[in-house]
Simulated assay, not measured.
Amino acid sequence: MARFAVGDIQGCFDELQLLVERMGFEPGRDTLYLVGDLVNRGPDSAAVLRWAKRHDESVRVVLGNHDLSLLALSAGVGKARQGDTMAAVLEAGDSPALLDWLRLQPLLLPLEDVLIVHAGIWPGWTQQQAIALAGEVQVQLAAQNWREGLAQMYGNQPASWDETLDGWPRWRFVVNALTRMRFVDAAGALQLKFKGELTDAPAGLYPWFDWPERISTSRIVCGHWSALGLRVRDQLIALDTGCIWGGALTGIDLDCGRLYQVPARREYQSLLPM
């Protein structure tokens, strides 16, 4: 019984199938954790969703920012961006079933030894805080008025965490931290505009996992940051290796640490990541 995690798929269904074959993943025996951004910018987001949904007893998913964008578009509260490839999902005959399944997925999966999340965990939260706050957002996405909530999801403010935040300002910060975060400043405020490599970061910014006052948690398994690439540390496994940009799709055996990669069949997007 193996436990695998896979980085951002973003519609790269063929590479996913090659990767799970290479890993020897067997549904019903093994568990596969997908770290979010199942959809968008790649060639077949609908196939990725169908496959994950069909195997959802063995495939566990956390939501990424592109997954939330798909839900927002389906609710009529989001805007398509250059390079988006989500129209095929929205137009599919099984779209309602796929989207209902997707929006019930969590933003954070706590395992005994690792935390699975898309972008990261805001470094000023304890592990218990992060789990509880992710649960608050999950409740909102499962509610009957979930469309109204998604209409309030977008925006970069508040940038700083305050326990007294209430309603969607509170949940917006949680969503941004768990699905969009890369850098924070010295005070721990989210800095969402810069998305590049560590060596090019403006002065005074820290990758969230290197914030000097970071509170320790279990090892975090994440994706989201293709410019960061593959990083394996004692407290971090970052798996986004930019398959849609012509890189690779990466997976890891969470128990033995063995890495697996499948190169992208081609460069699906040539613009800088957004």
Rank of each mutant, 00 (worst) to 15 (best):
D166Q: 05
W225D: 12
L99A: 05
M274T: 15
R170W: 09
I131S: 01
Y33W: 04
V184I: 06
L107K: 01
L141W: 01
N40D: 15
S69G: 09
E91W: 10
G11L: 14
L259I: 01
K195D: 14
G188T: 05
S95Y: 06
H224V: 13
L90K: 13
A203M: 05
H55P: 08
I237H: 04
T199I: 10
L115M: 06
P96R: 11
G120E: 08
G24F: 12
S45A: 02
V139Q: 11
L150H: 12
R172D: 00
G251S: 00
Q261M: 03
Q140A: 07
G229D: 04
P96Q: 04
A80D: 02
V48K: 14
G247P: 08
D37T: 09
R233W: 11
A151V: 01
R265F: 06
T164N: 13
G124H: 11
A143L: 05
E267R: 15
V221K: 06
F4C: 12
W168G: 12
E26L: 04
V221F: 05
K79L: 06
D253P: 07
W225A: 11
W171E: 06
H224C: 08
T85E: 03
E213S: 05
A227C: 12
M274F: 14
G223W: 00
L16H: 09
A189K: 07
L133N: 08
L71V: 02
S74R: 04
W168V: 05
P212K: 01
V221I: 11
I252A: 04
Q140K: 07
E15N: 13
D162E: 15
G93L: 07
R214P: 11
V137S: 10
L32I: 12
Q10D: 02
L111V: 12
G76M: 04
F25S: 13
M274G: 14
G76C: 06
S216N: 06
P123W: 02
V262K: 13
L230F: 12
R147E: 14
A5N: 01
L98P: 03
E163M: 02
L133K: 13
L18P: 10
R81I: 07
D8L: 01
A201E: 10
R3Y: 11
N156C: 09
V77A: 06
A264E: 01
V175P: 06
D100C: 00
D14A: 07
R231G: 09
L16I: 08
A187D: 01
W101M: 05
A88R: 14
R172Q: 08
L70Q: 06
T31G: 10
G196T: 03
G83Q: 15
Q157E: 15
V61W: 03
S74D: 10
L192S: 12
A119D: 04
T85K: 03
D84Q: 12
V221R: 06
I121L: 15
R182A: 08
C256S: 14
L192D: 09
